[in-house]
Design a protein around this nucleic acid. Sequence first.
DNA 1: CTATGGCACGGATT
DNA 2: AATCCGTGCCATAG
Length: 466
Amino acid sequence: MFQHIPFHAIKPLTTAHLAQTMTLLSLTSNELQEQIEAELASNPALEMLDEIRCPTCRRLIKGGGVCPVCSQPALNKEDEPIVFVSTREVVSGFGDSGEEEDREDTTSAMVEDLATYVFRQIAPDVAPEDRKLAAHLLTNLDEDGLLAVPLLEVAMYHHVPLSRVENLQRLIQRADPVGVGSTSPKEALLVQLEVLKETRSVPDYASEVIEQGMDLLSRRQFHEIAKRLGIQAEKVRIVARFISENLNPFPGRSYWGDVRQPSAPQTQVYYRPDILISKVNDSKSNQLMVEILFPIWGTLRVNPLYRQAIQQTSDEQKDAMREDLERASLFVKCLQQRNHTMQRLMAKIAFLQRDFILNGEKYLRPITRASLAKELGVHESTISRAVANKAVQLPNGRIIPLADFFDRSLSARIILKEIITAERRPLSDSELVRLLAEHGYEVARRTVAKYRAMEGILPASLRRPC
DNA sequence: CTATGGCACGGATT
DNA sequence: AATCCGTGCCATAG
Protein backbone atom coordinates (compact mmCIF):
# COMPACT_ATOMS: atom_id res chain seq x y z
CA MET A 1 0.00 0.00 0.00
CA PHE A 2 1.22 3.44 -0.59
CA GLN A 3 0.86 6.21 1.84
CA HIS A 4 -2.44 7.91 1.83
CA ILE A 5 -2.31 11.21 0.09
CA PRO A 6 -4.65 13.65 1.67
CA PHE A 7 -7.14 14.59 -0.90
CA HIS A 8 -7.46 18.28 -0.57
CA ALA A 9 -10.51 18.32 -2.66
CA ILE A 10 -9.15 20.81 -5.10
CA LYS A 11 -11.97 20.47 -7.51
CA PRO A 12 -12.03 22.23 -10.79
CA LEU A 13 -14.51 25.00 -10.30
CA THR A 14 -14.67 26.45 -13.74
CA THR A 15 -13.80 25.37 -17.19
CA ALA A 16 -11.03 27.92 -17.16
CA HIS A 17 -9.58 26.26 -14.13
CA LEU A 18 -9.80 22.89 -15.77
CA ALA A 19 -8.22 24.09 -18.97
CA GLN A 20 -5.33 25.79 -17.27
CA THR A 21 -4.65 22.80 -15.07
CA MET A 22 -4.48 20.66 -18.17
CA THR A 23 -2.00 22.99 -19.73
CA LEU A 24 0.15 23.09 -16.65
CA LEU A 25 0.12 19.33 -16.38
CA SER A 26 1.71 18.91 -19.74
CA LEU A 27 4.56 21.26 -18.98
CA THR A 28 7.97 20.09 -17.94
CA SER A 29 9.53 21.61 -14.90
CA ASN A 30 11.56 24.01 -16.99
CA GLU A 31 8.57 25.17 -18.94
CA LEU A 32 6.65 25.48 -15.74
CA GLN A 33 9.35 27.65 -14.34
CA GLU A 34 8.94 30.02 -17.25
CA GLN A 35 5.21 29.98 -16.81
CA ILE A 36 5.51 30.85 -13.17
CA GLU A 37 7.99 33.57 -13.93
CA ALA A 38 5.77 35.06 -16.57
CA GLU A 39 2.77 34.98 -14.28
CA LEU A 40 4.79 36.46 -11.46
CA ALA A 41 6.02 39.25 -13.66
CA SER A 42 2.66 40.13 -15.13
CA ASN A 43 0.51 39.80 -12.09
CA PRO A 44 1.21 42.01 -9.10
CA ALA A 45 -1.19 40.03 -6.97
CA LEU A 46 1.15 37.05 -6.92
CA GLU A 47 4.18 36.84 -4.74
CA MET A 48 6.94 34.36 -4.21
CA LEU A 49 8.21 33.73 -0.72
CA ASP A 50 11.68 32.37 -0.31
CA GLU A 51 10.76 30.01 2.45
CA ILE A 52 8.80 26.88 2.75
CA ARG A 53 6.73 26.11 5.75
CA CYS A 54 6.00 22.52 6.42
CA PRO A 55 2.24 22.21 6.32
CA THR A 56 2.08 19.74 9.14
CA CYS A 57 4.61 20.84 11.67
CA ARG A 58 4.58 24.46 10.55
CA ARG A 59 8.33 24.60 10.68
CA LEU A 60 10.25 26.76 8.28
CA ILE A 61 12.45 24.79 5.99
CA LYS A 62 15.39 26.40 4.32
CA GLY A 63 17.18 25.64 1.12
CA GLY A 64 14.24 24.17 -0.71
CA GLY A 65 14.35 20.92 1.18
CA VAL A 66 11.26 19.33 2.51
CA CYS A 67 10.58 18.29 6.03
CA PRO A 68 11.37 14.59 5.98
CA VAL A 69 8.59 13.55 8.27
CA CYS A 70 5.72 15.71 7.23
CA SER A 71 6.33 15.83 3.54
CA GLN A 72 2.78 16.47 2.58
CA PRO A 73 1.76 18.92 -0.07
CA ALA A 74 0.47 22.21 1.05
CA LEU A 75 -3.09 22.99 1.69
CA ASN A 76 -4.79 26.23 2.25
CA LYS A 77 -6.15 26.37 5.72
CA GLU A 78 -6.76 30.04 5.51
CA ASP A 79 -8.03 31.55 2.34
CA GLU A 80 -4.43 31.93 1.40
CA PRO A 81 -3.60 29.32 -1.17
CA ILE A 82 -0.05 28.17 -1.02
CA VAL A 83 1.96 26.11 -3.41
CA PHE A 84 5.17 24.53 -2.41
CA VAL A 85 7.18 24.34 -5.51
CA SER A 86 9.10 21.30 -4.50
CA THR A 87 7.24 18.36 -3.15
CA ARG A 88 8.08 14.89 -2.04
CA GLU A 89 6.03 11.84 -1.54
CA VAL A 90 7.08 8.63 0.08
CA VAL A 91 5.83 5.46 -1.44
CA SER A 92 6.33 2.31 0.46
CA GLY A 93 6.96 -0.90 -1.32
CA PHE A 94 5.09 -4.12 -1.34
CA GLY A 95 5.84 -7.81 -1.61
CA ASP A 96 9.21 -7.59 0.04
CA SER A 97 10.35 -11.12 -0.39
CA GLY A 98 14.11 -11.51 -0.37
CA GLU A 99 14.58 -11.80 -4.09
CA GLU A 100 15.55 -8.32 -4.99
CA GLU A 101 19.20 -7.62 -4.23
CA ASP A 102 20.46 -10.80 -5.91
CA ARG A 103 19.48 -9.78 -9.37
CA GLU A 104 20.93 -6.35 -9.14
CA ASP A 105 24.48 -7.41 -9.94
CA THR A 106 23.65 -7.97 -13.56
CA THR A 107 22.46 -4.42 -14.06
CA SER A 108 24.86 -2.57 -11.83
CA ALA A 109 27.80 -4.39 -13.36
CA MET A 110 26.94 -2.84 -16.68
CA VAL A 111 26.29 0.57 -15.25
CA GLU A 112 29.45 2.54 -14.89
CA ASP A 113 29.38 4.64 -11.82
CA LEU A 114 30.00 8.34 -11.92
CA ALA A 115 33.33 8.18 -10.11
CA THR A 116 34.88 5.68 -12.52
CA TYR A 117 33.43 7.47 -15.48
CA VAL A 118 35.14 10.68 -14.49
CA PHE A 119 38.32 8.97 -13.43
CA ARG A 120 38.73 7.36 -16.81
CA GLN A 121 38.65 10.73 -18.47
CA ILE A 122 41.22 12.37 -16.25
CA ALA A 123 43.46 9.36 -15.68
CA PRO A 124 45.96 10.26 -18.43
CA ASP A 125 46.48 13.69 -16.92
CA VAL A 126 46.90 12.61 -13.36
CA ALA A 127 50.37 12.11 -12.04
CA PRO A 128 50.75 8.65 -10.52
CA GLU A 129 51.38 10.07 -7.09
CA ASP A 130 48.11 11.92 -7.31
CA ARG A 131 46.02 8.88 -8.14
CA LYS A 132 45.14 8.24 -4.55
CA LEU A 133 44.14 11.81 -4.12
CA ALA A 134 41.90 11.69 -7.15
CA ALA A 135 40.28 8.50 -5.98
CA HIS A 136 39.63 10.07 -2.62
CA LEU A 137 37.91 13.03 -4.19
CA LEU A 138 35.89 10.99 -6.64
CA THR A 139 34.60 8.54 -4.11
CA ASN A 140 33.26 11.43 -2.12
CA LEU A 141 30.95 12.75 -4.78
CA ASP A 142 27.35 12.83 -3.74
CA GLU A 143 24.51 11.93 -6.05
CA ASP A 144 24.40 15.47 -7.33
CA GLY A 145 27.98 15.22 -8.47
CA LEU A 146 29.19 17.63 -5.84
CA LEU A 147 32.07 17.08 -3.51
CA ALA A 148 30.92 15.99 -0.09
CA VAL A 149 34.16 16.70 1.76
CA PRO A 150 36.06 19.95 2.19
CA LEU A 151 39.23 20.19 0.12
CA LEU A 152 41.24 21.15 3.14
CA GLU A 153 40.28 17.97 4.89
CA VAL A 154 41.47 15.89 1.96
CA ALA A 155 44.71 17.80 1.82
CA MET A 156 45.36 17.28 5.52
CA TYR A 157 44.44 13.65 5.34
CA HIS A 158 47.06 13.00 2.71
CA HIS A 159 49.54 15.53 4.08
CA VAL A 160 49.80 17.43 0.83
CA PRO A 161 49.49 21.14 0.13
CA LEU A 162 46.01 22.40 -0.48
CA SER A 163 47.03 23.76 -3.84
CA ARG A 164 47.72 20.27 -5.10
CA VAL A 165 44.24 19.15 -4.21
CA GLU A 166 42.84 22.25 -5.82
CA ASN A 167 44.68 21.57 -9.04
CA LEU A 168 43.28 18.11 -9.11
CA GLN A 169 39.80 19.43 -8.48
CA ARG A 170 40.15 21.81 -11.40
CA LEU A 171 40.98 18.85 -13.58
CA ILE A 172 37.97 16.90 -12.40
CA GLN A 173 35.64 19.84 -12.86
CA ARG A 174 36.50 20.00 -16.55
CA ALA A 175 35.65 16.36 -17.10
CA ASP A 176 32.43 15.29 -18.70
CA PRO A 177 29.59 16.25 -16.49
CA VAL A 178 31.22 19.66 -16.45
CA GLY A 179 31.37 21.05 -12.94
CA VAL A 180 31.47 17.67 -11.30
CA GLY A 181 33.50 17.66 -8.12
CA SER A 182 32.72 21.23 -7.21
CA THR A 183 32.19 22.01 -3.57
CA SER A 184 28.96 23.90 -4.13
CA PRO A 185 26.32 24.49 -6.79
CA LYS A 186 27.74 27.96 -7.13
CA GLU A 187 31.17 26.69 -7.96
CA ALA A 188 29.73 24.18 -10.39
CA LEU A 189 27.94 26.95 -12.23
CA LEU A 190 31.06 29.07 -12.39
CA VAL A 191 33.11 26.23 -13.85
CA GLN A 192 30.45 25.46 -16.43
CA LEU A 193 30.37 29.11 -17.31
CA GLU A 194 34.13 29.15 -17.79
CA VAL A 195 34.00 26.17 -20.08
CA LEU A 196 31.11 27.53 -22.10
CA LYS A 197 32.90 30.81 -22.49
CA GLU A 198 35.60 29.09 -24.47
CA THR A 199 33.26 28.13 -27.24
CA ARG A 200 30.45 30.65 -27.24
CA SER A 201 29.46 33.99 -25.92
CA VAL A 202 27.80 34.34 -22.57
CA PRO A 203 25.74 37.22 -21.20
CA ASP A 204 27.47 40.09 -19.49
CA TYR A 205 27.80 39.92 -15.74
CA ALA A 206 27.04 36.20 -15.73
CA SER A 207 29.87 35.30 -13.41
CA GLU A 208 29.22 38.32 -11.21
CA VAL A 209 25.61 37.36 -10.81
CA ILE A 210 26.50 33.82 -9.88
CA GLU A 211 29.34 34.90 -7.66
CA GLN A 212 27.41 37.41 -5.66
CA GLY A 213 23.78 36.62 -6.12
CA MET A 214 23.63 32.85 -5.95
CA ASP A 215 21.45 32.79 -2.86
CA LEU A 216 19.05 35.31 -4.30
CA LEU A 217 19.11 33.72 -7.72
CA SER A 218 17.29 30.61 -6.68
CA ARG A 219 14.62 32.75 -5.11
CA ARG A 220 14.38 34.75 -8.28
CA GLN A 221 14.87 38.04 -6.53
CA PHE A 222 16.35 39.68 -9.54
CA HIS A 223 15.88 43.22 -8.37
CA GLU A 224 17.81 42.57 -5.22
CA ILE A 225 20.71 41.14 -7.22
CA ALA A 226 20.61 44.04 -9.61
CA LYS A 227 20.79 46.44 -6.73
CA ARG A 228 23.72 44.62 -5.24
CA LEU A 229 25.68 44.73 -8.45
CA GLY A 230 24.46 48.12 -9.51
CA ILE A 231 23.13 46.93 -12.85
CA GLN A 232 19.73 46.74 -14.45
CA ALA A 233 17.32 44.06 -13.37
CA GLU A 234 16.77 43.12 -16.97
CA LYS A 235 20.40 42.06 -17.30
CA VAL A 236 20.05 39.84 -14.30
CA ARG A 237 17.00 38.33 -15.86
CA ILE A 238 18.91 37.52 -19.00
CA VAL A 239 21.65 35.88 -17.00
CA ALA A 240 19.11 33.88 -15.02
CA ARG A 241 17.56 32.65 -18.19
CA PHE A 242 20.94 31.71 -19.61
CA ILE A 243 21.78 29.80 -16.49
CA SER A 244 18.61 27.82 -16.43
CA GLU A 245 18.99 26.93 -20.06
CA ASN A 246 22.65 26.07 -20.18
CA LEU A 247 24.00 25.34 -16.75
CA ASN A 248 23.28 22.77 -14.15
CA PRO A 249 24.04 23.39 -10.49
CA PHE A 250 23.99 19.65 -9.87
CA PRO A 251 26.30 18.15 -12.48
CA GLY A 252 25.61 14.60 -11.35
CA ARG A 253 21.97 14.82 -12.25
CA SER A 254 22.56 15.21 -15.92
CA TYR A 255 24.79 12.22 -15.82
CA TRP A 256 23.44 9.28 -17.72
CA GLY A 257 24.45 6.38 -15.52
CA ASP A 258 24.70 4.01 -18.40
CA VAL A 259 27.13 5.18 -21.02
CA ARG A 260 26.40 2.50 -23.50
CA GLN A 261 27.68 1.92 -26.97
CA PRO A 262 26.34 4.07 -29.74
CA SER A 263 24.34 0.99 -30.71
CA ALA A 264 21.39 2.35 -28.82
CA PRO A 265 19.71 4.67 -31.30
CA GLN A 266 17.45 6.31 -28.72
CA THR A 267 20.37 7.99 -27.00
CA GLN A 268 18.52 11.13 -26.23
CA VAL A 269 19.91 12.89 -23.25
CA TYR A 270 17.57 14.48 -20.82
CA TYR A 271 19.49 17.12 -19.01
CA ARG A 272 17.12 17.59 -16.22
CA PRO A 273 14.67 15.22 -14.70
CA ASP A 274 11.26 16.52 -13.82
CA ILE A 275 10.83 13.81 -11.28
CA LEU A 276 13.31 12.15 -9.01
CA ILE A 277 12.86 8.68 -7.59
CA SER A 278 15.24 7.58 -4.93
CA LYS A 279 15.54 4.95 -2.27
CA VAL A 280 14.64 6.18 1.13
CA ASN A 281 17.52 6.19 3.57
CA ASP A 282 16.98 3.10 5.59
CA SER A 283 17.25 0.33 3.09
CA LYS A 284 15.24 -1.98 5.23
CA SER A 285 11.89 -0.45 4.61
CA ASN A 286 12.33 -0.66 0.86
CA GLN A 287 10.56 2.57 0.34
CA LEU A 288 10.84 4.75 -2.65
CA MET A 289 10.74 8.47 -2.48
CA VAL A 290 9.22 10.34 -5.33
CA GLU A 291 10.04 13.98 -5.75
CA ILE A 292 8.36 16.25 -8.18
CA LEU A 293 11.21 18.57 -9.00
CA PHE A 294 11.04 22.24 -9.63
CA PRO A 295 13.87 24.38 -10.87
CA ILE A 296 12.96 26.98 -8.34
CA TRP A 297 11.67 26.68 -4.85
CA GLY A 298 9.75 28.80 -2.49
CA THR A 299 6.17 29.47 -1.72
CA LEU A 300 3.89 30.98 -4.26
CA ARG A 301 0.80 32.67 -2.98
CA VAL A 302 -1.61 35.46 -3.46
CA ASN A 303 -0.17 38.57 -1.94
CA PRO A 304 -2.27 39.42 1.09
CA LEU A 305 -1.16 43.03 0.92
CA TYR A 306 -2.57 43.29 -2.54
CA ARG A 307 -5.87 42.08 -1.23
CA GLN A 308 -5.88 44.78 1.40
CA ALA A 309 -4.78 47.39 -1.03
CA ILE A 310 -7.95 46.91 -3.01
CA GLN A 311 -10.00 48.50 -0.26
CA GLN A 312 -8.10 51.72 -0.50
CA THR A 313 -8.17 52.30 -4.20
CA SER A 314 -10.56 54.13 -6.37
CA ASP A 315 -13.44 52.32 -7.96
CA GLU A 316 -12.03 52.36 -11.47
CA GLN A 317 -8.92 50.56 -10.38
CA LYS A 318 -10.75 48.18 -8.16
CA ASP A 319 -12.09 46.11 -11.00
CA ALA A 320 -8.73 45.70 -12.62
CA MET A 321 -7.19 44.72 -9.35
CA ARG A 322 -9.95 42.27 -8.61
CA GLU A 323 -9.26 40.66 -11.90
CA ASP A 324 -5.60 40.35 -11.07
CA LEU A 325 -6.49 38.82 -7.78
CA GLU A 326 -8.84 36.44 -9.46
CA ARG A 327 -6.22 35.39 -11.95
CA ALA A 328 -3.61 34.97 -9.27
CA SER A 329 -5.71 32.72 -7.14
CA LEU A 330 -6.79 30.71 -10.14
CA PHE A 331 -3.19 30.24 -11.16
CA VAL A 332 -2.19 29.11 -7.71
CA LYS A 333 -5.09 26.72 -7.52
CA CYS A 334 -4.21 25.23 -10.87
CA LEU A 335 -0.63 24.83 -9.84
CA GLN A 336 -1.77 23.13 -6.70
CA GLN A 337 -3.89 20.77 -8.61
CA ARG A 338 -1.12 20.02 -11.05
CA ASN A 339 1.18 19.08 -8.21
CA HIS A 340 -1.48 17.05 -6.61
CA THR A 341 -2.21 15.12 -9.77
CA MET A 342 1.45 14.57 -10.53
CA GLN A 343 1.97 13.28 -7.07
CA ARG A 344 -0.87 10.85 -7.18
CA LEU A 345 0.24 9.71 -10.59
CA MET A 346 3.84 9.16 -9.62
CA ALA A 347 2.91 7.44 -6.39
CA LYS A 348 0.86 5.01 -8.38
CA ILE A 349 3.55 4.47 -10.98
CA ALA A 350 6.25 3.96 -8.39
CA PHE A 351 4.02 1.45 -6.70
CA LEU A 352 3.26 -0.50 -9.85
CA GLN A 353 6.70 -0.34 -11.41
CA ARG A 354 8.71 -0.88 -8.29
CA ASP A 355 10.65 -3.80 -9.70
CA PHE A 356 11.49 -1.85 -12.78
CA ILE A 357 12.75 1.12 -10.83
CA LEU A 358 14.93 -0.98 -8.56
CA ASN A 359 16.02 -3.81 -10.79
CA GLY A 360 16.12 -2.59 -14.32
CA GLU A 361 14.33 -2.71 -17.59
CA LYS A 362 13.66 -6.40 -17.52
CA TYR A 363 11.07 -5.94 -14.86
CA LEU A 364 9.00 -3.30 -16.54
CA ARG A 365 5.36 -4.15 -16.35
CA PRO A 366 3.14 -3.33 -19.24
CA ILE A 367 0.79 -0.69 -17.97
CA THR A 368 -1.55 1.26 -20.18
CA ARG A 369 -2.27 4.88 -19.57
CA ALA A 370 -5.92 4.08 -19.80
CA SER A 371 -5.89 1.61 -16.92
CA LEU A 372 -3.94 4.02 -14.77
CA ALA A 373 -6.39 6.77 -15.61
CA LYS A 374 -9.22 4.58 -14.50
CA GLU A 375 -7.56 3.74 -11.20
CA LEU A 376 -6.84 7.35 -10.46
CA GLY A 377 -10.23 8.47 -11.59
CA VAL A 378 -9.01 10.95 -14.16
CA HIS A 379 -9.40 11.16 -17.89
CA GLU A 380 -6.92 9.30 -20.05
CA SER A 381 -5.85 12.43 -21.76
CA THR A 382 -4.83 13.80 -18.37
CA ILE A 383 -2.36 10.97 -18.00
CA SER A 384 -1.19 11.37 -21.54
CA ARG A 385 -0.39 15.00 -21.00
CA ALA A 386 1.21 14.42 -17.65
CA VAL A 387 3.43 11.71 -18.99
CA ALA A 388 4.54 13.31 -22.22
CA ASN A 389 7.79 15.21 -22.42
CA LYS A 390 8.93 14.54 -18.93
CA ALA A 391 11.98 12.79 -17.59
CA VAL A 392 12.49 10.76 -14.46
CA GLN A 393 15.67 10.05 -12.66
CA LEU A 394 15.87 6.57 -11.19
CA PRO A 395 17.75 5.61 -8.02
CA ASN A 396 20.65 4.31 -10.10
CA GLY A 397 21.13 7.70 -11.71
CA ARG A 398 19.68 7.00 -15.12
CA ILE A 399 17.38 9.56 -16.54
CA ILE A 400 14.63 8.18 -18.71
CA PRO A 401 11.50 9.58 -20.27
CA LEU A 402 8.45 9.15 -18.12
CA ALA A 403 6.73 7.53 -21.06
CA ASP A 404 9.07 4.56 -20.74
CA PHE A 405 7.02 3.42 -17.80
CA PHE A 406 4.28 2.66 -20.27
CA ASP A 407 6.33 0.94 -22.92
CA ARG A 408 4.49 -2.26 -23.53
CA SER A 409 7.32 -4.00 -25.29
CA LEU A 410 10.46 -2.84 -23.54
CA SER A 411 10.84 -5.77 -21.20
CA ALA A 412 10.00 -8.24 -23.94
CA ARG A 413 12.67 -6.70 -26.13
CA ILE A 414 15.25 -6.97 -23.37
CA ILE A 415 14.48 -10.66 -22.92
CA LEU A 416 14.60 -11.14 -26.65
CA LYS A 417 18.03 -9.59 -26.79
CA GLU A 418 19.19 -11.84 -24.01
CA ILE A 419 17.92 -14.92 -25.74
CA ILE A 420 19.57 -14.04 -28.97
CA THR A 421 22.84 -13.13 -27.32
CA ALA A 422 22.86 -16.50 -25.60
CA GLU A 423 21.77 -18.54 -28.59
CA ARG A 424 24.14 -21.24 -29.82
CA ARG A 425 22.85 -21.23 -33.38
CA PRO A 426 20.75 -18.61 -35.14
CA LEU A 427 17.16 -19.06 -34.03
CA SER A 428 14.28 -18.34 -36.36
CA ASP A 429 11.54 -15.93 -35.42
CA SER A 430 9.02 -18.65 -34.69
CA GLU A 431 11.46 -20.40 -32.41
CA LEU A 432 12.00 -17.14 -30.64
CA VAL A 433 8.26 -16.89 -30.16
CA ARG A 434 8.30 -20.17 -28.26
CA LEU A 435 11.25 -19.15 -26.11
CA LEU A 436 9.69 -15.82 -25.32
CA ALA A 437 6.49 -17.57 -24.33
CA GLU A 438 8.51 -19.60 -21.83
CA HIS A 439 9.57 -16.34 -20.28
CA GLY A 440 5.96 -15.30 -20.06
CA TYR A 441 5.75 -13.11 -23.12
CA GLU A 442 3.00 -14.07 -25.53
CA VAL A 443 3.72 -12.26 -28.74
CA ALA A 444 3.05 -12.99 -32.37
CA ARG A 445 5.74 -14.18 -34.68
CA ARG A 446 5.42 -11.07 -36.71
CA THR A 447 6.01 -9.00 -33.63
CA VAL A 448 9.27 -10.73 -32.87
CA ALA A 449 10.44 -9.64 -36.29
CA LYS A 450 9.51 -6.07 -35.45
CA TYR A 451 11.32 -6.19 -32.12
CA ARG A 452 14.37 -7.50 -33.87
CA ALA A 453 14.22 -4.62 -36.27
CA MET A 454 13.85 -2.18 -33.40
CA GLU A 455 16.93 -3.54 -31.71
CA GLY A 456 18.82 -3.70 -34.97
CA ILE A 457 19.21 -7.46 -34.89
CA LEU A 458 19.60 -9.22 -38.22
CA PRO A 459 17.36 -12.10 -39.28
CA ALA A 460 18.44 -15.59 -38.33
CA SER A 461 19.81 -16.42 -41.74
CA LEU A 462 22.22 -13.52 -41.60
CA ARG A 463 23.39 -13.93 -38.05
CA ARG A 464 26.83 -15.39 -37.55
CA PRO A 465 26.71 -19.09 -36.64
CA CYS A 466 29.60 -18.42 -34.33
C1' DC B 1 8.31 -25.56 -47.64
C1' DT B 2 10.22 -22.19 -44.24
C1' DA B 3 11.60 -17.60 -42.86
C1' DT B 4 10.82 -12.78 -43.48
C1' DG B 5 9.35 -8.35 -44.83
C1' DG B 6 5.27 -5.43 -46.68
C1' DC B 7 0.67 -3.71 -46.09
C1' DA B 8 -3.50 -2.96 -43.76
C1' DC B 9 -6.76 -3.22 -39.79
C1' DG B 10 -8.03 -2.27 -34.95
C1' DG B 11 -7.14 -0.67 -30.56
C1' DA B 12 -4.48 2.58 -27.81
C1' DT B 13 -2.34 7.19 -27.57
C1' DT B 14 -1.98 11.99 -28.43
C1' DA C 1 -9.09 13.37 -35.94
C1' DA C 2 -4.36 11.86 -36.72
C1' DT C 3 -0.75 8.63 -35.40
C1' DC C 4 1.65 4.72 -33.39
C1' DC C 5 2.04 -0.21 -32.36
C1' DG C 6 0.91 -5.21 -32.36
C1' DT C 7 -0.97 -8.59 -35.53
C1' DG C 8 -2.73 -11.27 -39.31
C1' DC C 9 -2.49 -12.30 -44.24
C1' DC C 10 0.16 -12.75 -48.30
C1' DA C 11 3.95 -12.45 -51.51
C1' DT C 12 8.75 -13.32 -52.09
C1' DA C 13 13.43 -15.18 -51.22
C1' DG C 14 15.98 -19.07 -50.11
